[in-house]
Amino acid sequence: MVGHISSGIIPGNGVTDQLMEPTTSIVQIKGIRDGLLATFSEAPWEDQQSALLSQIDDRPTFFQGARLAIDIGTQALKVNDLVDLRDRLSERNVSLWAVVSESPLTEQTSQLLGLATRISKPRPEEQRHFIDTISNDTALFIAKTIRSGARIEYPGHILIVGDVNPGAEVVAEGNVIVWGRVRGMIHAGSKGDRSAFICALDLSANQLRIADEVSAALKPHKDPRPEIASINSEGRLQAEVWHAG
């Protein structure tokens, strides 16, 4: 009697709405290798969030103890949005472990909350291309200390005003400049750019990487001076004191 509806909500058709399977709502949920992946459409955040939660409430046994990743497309989310969603999921015994997004703000928010921003499923090629075209000249600016457990990843340059503490990771496809102390791990030129460099007011990092070169731990300096690390003519990663001019 009822034809199968495969996608989307048909506006103005209340009967169809009620008969639809939950999986055809604005949030698509499917199984991936690392648990479940919920893909959000472009609808407003509140609607998507309640659609997701109502799907979970409809089938509590299926979602019990699940590891959930969400792909929220291009929406820019603030800390409170994600914390709220995570807590509400947690109350339903669903753990949010990853947030995939094309918005740098959302990615940064997720990283600050200790959520993964990559899942094993590669992003479709066309979306990657979008990021590549903006990568060369853009920089991510962060004016705070990057603490243990935080991972900052960006497809351009990264500029940090603050320290990079031990246990923190900063990964850039371009250069990394830190106006502060570096004691964590920094990787510049992460996609293989051997001309990338890292500079900092105090470069006492426990590990530096440029492209595929890895340096051993640098000794903490008694009298720190600004330094710049790059790959030298012999192809080795080295750090030297920075001289103006």
Binding site: L113, G149, P166
Partner: peptide, 15 residues
């Protein structure tokens, strides 16, 4: 201290 730093980072992120 490393773990305390991690906790401080989370507290900052959660405002």
């Amino acid at each position: 201290v490393r773990d305390a730093d991690r906790v401080v980072g989370i507290l900052e992120a959660e405002e």
